[in-house]
Amino acid sequence: MVQQTEIVGESIGQPRSERTQETAAADQRGRLRSTPGFYRRAWRRLRRDKVAMVSLGICVFILLFAFGAPVVSQITGHSYERGDLRSNLLAPGSDSYLLGTDASGRDILTRLAYGGRISLMVAWLSALVALAVGGTVGSVAGYYGGFIDSVLMRFVDMIIAIPGITLLLLLSTLWRPGPVGLALVIASLGWTGIARLVRGEVLSLKNRDYVDAARVVGASNSRIIFRHIFPNVLSLIIVWISLAIPGLIIAEASLSYLGFGVRIPIPSWGNMLDEAKEFYRASWTYVFIPGLAIYITALAFNLLGNGLRDALDPRLND
């Protein structure tokens, strides 16, 4: 889970410290006019990146498929919770079951949509919570420095040193969580990566001339953080979210697979995999399909994240 964030760290940890004159000026202009210029140009760069655009298309499709689960259910004509035991473990393409049926005779396609809804919701929610916590810790540590910085960062070091999955298992045992609880559990460990990134970024931003200028004019700390530093950390955050989602989806899947995730009646991709593993001899597609959904989603978000990083960091495009 920490993997993805490390990759972000190595390549966009310090982009702005070495900005060219031109882009620095663009930032400046952008901020004054509440940033249309910078993001419009980033979008133009992103549109030229075929891999990123295809990934973006896939991401949008997956989100529509998952959050339109009731529509999928109407189209397939099957519900996610009721199945016909007489037609269990059917291969894909038999009868009206496009992707086959599971061990209880439920339509896998419909369950995939509902499962995706839970999996994606857990991943996004935990990304946002992790962002809120990590962003706050990181900017406080970076901005105030000194004692606060060392205390917070030693705490981060400590959490990073524990293999995340063991703490996740512990916390899910503790809470027996539903989807929201699970997202909080995953976020409670996922915030360390973004905290480090934001801290590094804030450290390099806080000594800029325009921050000094704001301080001279008499801006308060919170105004400087939110008005002057935050907009400059935003692109880092966008890239982080895109690259963190795969890890978070896989974390949900792994926890659910191990039996510590979302409880059974609500499908998620992870516990579909968990249910399927018992029947791996009888129907390999039953195992293959939910995992493939996780994989495609993770891959698409990773590729999109790489594209976003290139588009938002013009230094790399020179």
Partner: peptide, 8 residues
């Protein structure tokens, strides 16, 4: 391979 869920 980097994005592959190891469970799967």
């Amino acid at each position: 391979f980097y994005s592959i869920p190891s469970v799967w």
